[in-house]
Nucleic acid binder design. Structure first.
Ligand SMILES: [Mn+2]
Ligand SMILES: [Mn+2]
Ligand SMILES: [Zn+2]
Ligand SMILES: [Zn+2]
Lengths: 166, 166
DNA sequence: ACGGTTATGGCAAATGATTTGCAATTGTGA
DNA sequence: TCACAATTGCAAATCATTTGCCATAACCGT
């Protein structure tokens, strides 16, 4: 795919550009994809999210972001997320639930999560990932490439611990 | 098969009783549950497994363990696994696939996994878990109790890396 | 701005996985 | 051996994911 560095002032799609709507829009276009109202809304929802979102949540957040109008169809959200996964812009997060949850994946700020198995509260964990540095070692030891990981902690939050005791 | 001290065992999986068929049988009975041919076969399949098994696999391995006869119904395997999860004897493992996979959970030998996202190969990782010691810290810091975790690495195995390059 | 090309989106139906109801069966303790 | 409750097979229900089809709309070149 030819890269036209027409005006070098900004937005090289492949650069570690901070995840911004414009940056993502550019990236999509560079792949021959189109930027639509639905997609803008979905991306905004994901950008604003403080925790992984389910398809329903993306749908409702998206319509809120785009200030009203019809929410994107469920299938549309589904296809968009499949696309973003394909492009490694988003990833599925294992929250131990039946349906899928997604978050944008910024290679510099990936997050692990703490999930209350009772009330469902999700807390992104602060600080450095404790296993990121292992990816390289594991890759070498087992002859793997492109190693990523998924790390979640599950437990009972304070409230739910109390409730369980009574 | 020496059953040295199978009495005084009516309680939790915390009795660092080794995970053996008899031990598990006893545990189930202590909960008022019954030990049947199906259950014995399913447990044997799980005990023998070197990696997490899907419901189908449990079904086929179970019939092999019990040396023939009808394989347990799919719903039976499903209910058995729900039960074992409930009792914290087994857990679901996130292999990034659509359907669920299970493994017995021995608090002393829990395993994280390396999964090839292309061919599906699953490799239990040797050695100490790199985050087990964090569970306590996270529990304290966030006011959680009963904290567990799920850690999987994903990537392309040697073969699949080669194929992808061509 | 206009029009042709083609990605996209809505709708509904197909697929796939999980879960449940129910009657017949079977394990267990008495 | 009996009575009772747990278990199981089978089929149907539920829930989540995925796809086909065609009308629509984004983008490109004029
Ligand atoms: Mn991490
Ligand atoms: Mn671990
Ligand atoms: Zn909670
Ligand atoms: Zn592979």
């Amino acid at each position: 795919m030819p890269r036209s560095h027409s005006h070098h002032s900004h937005s090289h799609a492949e650069d570690a550009e901070p995840f911004t709507l414009d940056g993502l829009a550019e990236l999509l276009r560079s792949k021959g994809l189109r930027m639509t109202g639905n997609r803008r809304a979905i991306l905004q929802a994901l950008l604003k999210a403080k925790k992984p979102l389910g398809l329903e949540e993306i749908q409702t957040e998206a319509v809120r972001q785009s200030k009203g109008g019809e929410p994107p169809d469920f299938a549309t959200v589904f296809r968009m997320m499949a696309l973003l996964e394909e492009l490694k812009i988003a990833r599925k997060v294992n929250l131990g639930r039946a349906s899928s949850y997604f978050e944008l994946v910024d290679s510099r700020h990936h997050r692990d999560h703490l999930v209350c198995t009772d009330c469902g509260t999700v807390t992104p964990l602060e600080g450095n990932c404790p296993v990121e540095s292992l990816e390289r070692q594991i890759a070498r030891k087992h002859g793997y490439t492109q190693v990523t990981h998924s790390l979640e902690f599950f437990g009972l939050c304070g409230d739910c611990s109390t409730d369980a005791a009574s």
